[in-house]
Simulated assay, not measured.
Amino acid sequence: MLNPPSLPGRQKRKSQHKIESLEAYAIDACTNDDQKKTAGMILRAMGLVKTASSALNLLIDVGYFPVHVNLDLLKFNIRVDYPDEVISAAENLLSEPFDPDEVDRKDLTHLKVYAIDVDEADELDDALSATRLLDGRIKVWIHVADPTSLVQPGSIVDRNTKEVPDAGCCGRDQHPKHFLHGFMLYREAMKRGTSIFLPTATYPMFPEKLAMEGMSLKQGELCNAVTVSVVLHSDGRIWEGNSDLWATDSHLEIFLSE
């Protein structure tokens, strides 16, 4: 039988239990009656009413929560930080870029490419181009940022696996090191499921630097994108006999328009 923990250890666990009970009570996420009872006893001992807002204010007063804490992040258990190994993998991909589609990309830098967004936009996902053909029809190009140039979809790996696959299974002529970094980031993104956009902050599926730099369209820089084009009549209708609807990997330069 293990020796009982020392008194400081017991006190630490009791304090942690009290904090966790107050937090659960503040966000209406108590999982058992003991948490409710513990939170109620603490609030009563502090001379506070037994409400979620009282628990929240107490946690702010003791410095456990920041003053402007976003409770929705806590209620939905949204992670805002990334493991160190995921941050390291993102930095490695940015420092040693390897594009498996490089030989297939078409140079579209002759097009004027416009993204409509605010000046302070950090992440541009798509942009447009338009050219007028000799017969008066208009050809519209839709450019979408290509994050798969850095991180491959899960078709080549089991998205539920907990182990990093052997580098020998990498596909699309990827460099083994690039593949392993990409797999680690892909697995982290699958755990998160989506990027979170709030009025006060954005929490992307991938580490912020990778999402904002490597996976976005950047103004005045050469960018990787997937491009689709469609031909329109002069009145805006899609050309019925359109055979020019296609997708390609491309290189772009972006011009930001307010």
Rank of each mutant, 00 (worst) to 15 (best):
G193D: 08
K218N: 06
L150Y: 08
S149Q: 00
M215F: 13
H68V: 10
R10K: 09
K75V: 13
P204T: 03
L124T: 08
M41Y: 14
L180M: 06
D104K: 03
P5Q: 13
R192Y: 13
I27Q: 01
P66D: 08
A201H: 14
D61Y: 15
L232T: 05
I138N: 00
V49M: 12
T148F: 12
D135W: 11
L108F: 03
D81T: 12
F98Q: 04
E240G: 04
P100G: 03
V62I: 15
H17Q: 13
M190S: 11
R192C: 02
A29D: 06
D107L: 00
V118Y: 14
R132M: 11
S88C: 14
L59S: 01
D158N: 12
K112Q: 11
T109I: 12
S129Q: 07
E253C: 02
K12N: 06
E240Y: 15
S216T: 02
G63R: 05
H233V: 06
P4V: 09
P5H: 13
E23Y: 05
G63L: 06
A26K: 00
P4Y: 15
N57R: 10
V67N: 08
L7S: 10
R137T: 06
G182K: 00
A127S: 10
G40S: 09
N77F: 14
C30T: 13
E221N: 11
L124Y: 12
F255W: 08
R13Q: 12
A201C: 15
V226D: 01
L222P: 00
R10N: 09
T194K: 07
L133P: 04
T248K: 04
N92E: 09
Y64P: 00
G154I: 01
